[in-house]
Design a protein around this nucleic acid. Structure first.
Length: 218
DNA sequence: CACCAGGCAAGTA
DNA sequence: TACTTGCATGGT
């Protein structure tokens, strides 16, 4: 991926990629693992979500055909390390129900569905908000939906590229308008934002000294 | 011991 | 509409 920056959002991407390099995120796993992981990682760290995924994997439950046979009560104890396990077990069960009811229990059909329809269906599931829905669309279904999270808001508002009060829709709109619509670009950019936030943008630090985005102005 | 980590829904005023 | 609260574990 090579291009000249036409705006601050493209420039930020180039700087981050130049500094950190390729991140290789979720695409290494199967789409079903991504789907489950998207719920398990809600409001926790990947370390804890990964332990819950390991439990499922060791029980042979990290595929639709097996996990879909379980009730929320049966799923809950297996995903304890991810925290909020009762809530997340219900959310996973709700997602499995969507696949069962709208896609005849065929996970491949779910993944191959038209993006806008699928997004609406995901958002209608209790426990799936905009970030989780877009994470699934981008990282499981390979559809170009830009994922916004707390890091995106924090990093870009601190660097004066977003208003502090911008909400999810507004932030996503800014990125979509500024950068090329491309699955690989969306994937990599989001991963790079998480990376730079963890490394440079701790709470209470208004501007990130030494950060690749230092002095980047809108 | 306090605080944080890749949210979301439900309740309140 | 705009806050606030509940949900819970594991690492630093």
């Amino acid at each position: 991926m090579s291009f000249a920056a036409k705006n601050p959002f493209e420039e930020a991407y180039l700087r981050l990629f130049d500094y950190f390099g390729e991140q290789h995120w979720w695409p290494a796993e199967t789409p079903f693992e991504v789907l489950v992981g998207a719920v398990l990682v809600q409001n926790t760290n990947w370390s804890n979500a990964g332990k819950a995924l390991d439990n499922l994997r060791e029980s042979g439950l990290l595929e639709y055909e097996t996990l879909s046979q379980l009730s929320a009560e049966e799923i809950a104890p297996l995903i304890r390390p991810s925290g909020y396990y009762n809530v997340k077990a219900k959310r996973l069960r709700n997602l499995l129900n969507l696949i069962e009811e709208e896609y005849a229990g065929d996970f491949a059909s779910f993944c191959a569905a038209e993006g806008e329809v699928l997004r609406e269906q995901l958002l209608a599931v209790k426990g799936i908000g905009a970030e989780t829905a877009d994470s699934i669309l981008l990282y499981a279904c390979a559809l170009p939906y830009f994922v916004v999270d707390a890091y995106t808001h924090r990093v870009f508002s601190r660097h004066n590229l977003l208003d502090e009060e911008s909400d999810y829709v507004a932030i996503q709109g800014r990125f979509v308008a500024a950068i090329e619509c491309d699955v690989d670009l969306y994937n990599e950019y989001h991963a790079l934002i998480v990376r730079v936030a963890k490394e440079f943008c701790r709470k209470g630090v208004p501007l990130c000294a030494g950060c690749p985005l230092e002095d980047l102005t809108g």
